[in-house]
Design a binder for these strands. Sequence first.
DNA 1: ATTAAATGTACGGCAAGCCTAACACTTTGT
DNA 2: ACAAAGTGTTAGGCTTGCCGTACATTTAAT
Lengths: 148, 148
Amino acid sequence: MRKKKISASLEDYLETIYEIIEEKQGVKAIEISRRLKVGRSSVTEALKNLAEKKLVNYGRYDVISLTPAGERAAREIQFKHQVLYDFLVNILGVNEDEAQNNACRLEHVISENVLKRLILFIEFNKNFHCADHNYLEEFKKFYSEKEE
Amino acid sequence: MRKKKISASLEDYLETIYEIIEEKQGVKAIEISRRLKVGRSSVTEALKNLAEKKLVNYGRYDVISLTPAGERAAREIQFKHQVLYDFLVNILGVNEDEAQNNACRLEHVISENVLKRLILFIEFNKNFHCADHNYLEEFKKFYSEKEE
DNA sequence: ATTAAATGTACGGCAAGCCTAACACTTTGT
DNA sequence: ACAAAGTGTTAGGCTTGCCGTACATTTAAT
């Protein structure tokens, strides 16, 4: 009974709900609507859908919350996002906005195994020094030479 | 008049057509159907759609080919795929099948700029040696230690 | 407490993409 | 050349996910 896939769109809803919970006390549908830039009615639909899948607790006009399974799923997605963002910013040196944008899309399609390797790669890079050269510094230099 | 975005689905069709052209003389719709694992009728629809966008030359029961714009677009997608595959296999050390799978999905969502950086990162890595350590070798060692 | 504003929902619609089944055209084998 | 098999097309249907509008409910202001 593990890991039923949900659509990228539903992942976004879950992730957003989770983020709002982290920041505020209650989750209002309109807040989800604003963050995802979709209509209020789309949020209602999505919530019903997520409720069917037992990922959110939902009832008409009622408080929105994540079920344990929903929270687990949301955390996973958020974690993927964070790893990707970290890679893009701290390794590739992409600017923050673009890194966010890319992470938002990549998080829905990257496999578990690639994620795992990416995590280790990041860890490895942060500590890798060799004969007083910092690897990432070297890459930045290399990159900015190629820029011109 | 540059770079109108098309859907991930249409990108797959374009890419597949391009691949078939590289391998065989003529493109048959059924071949596209087989490779993309969709029904024959879905191919017809997609071809009409791509023809509307002036990316393929299409007429009922007629030979399928790419327009110059279509070929350009297909090349771009294939190139992205190749870069991602290269990164996954040669840098992260992901196995070939999984790298193909991931590349197929990532190619539709990665931005131009991230791609550009990835290309340079790969280039940089291939040549980066330092005090007789090969960087990628070091990562492989690091990775396999963590594996256990 | 009452009303105005804000928020949530239901309903009907639309587009993308996929499907199956039936039919049209082409190719192939004899 | 002609039937059978293969391929391409059309028509109709389904699902996901979005929208706008109108209505229901809740919240906030007075």
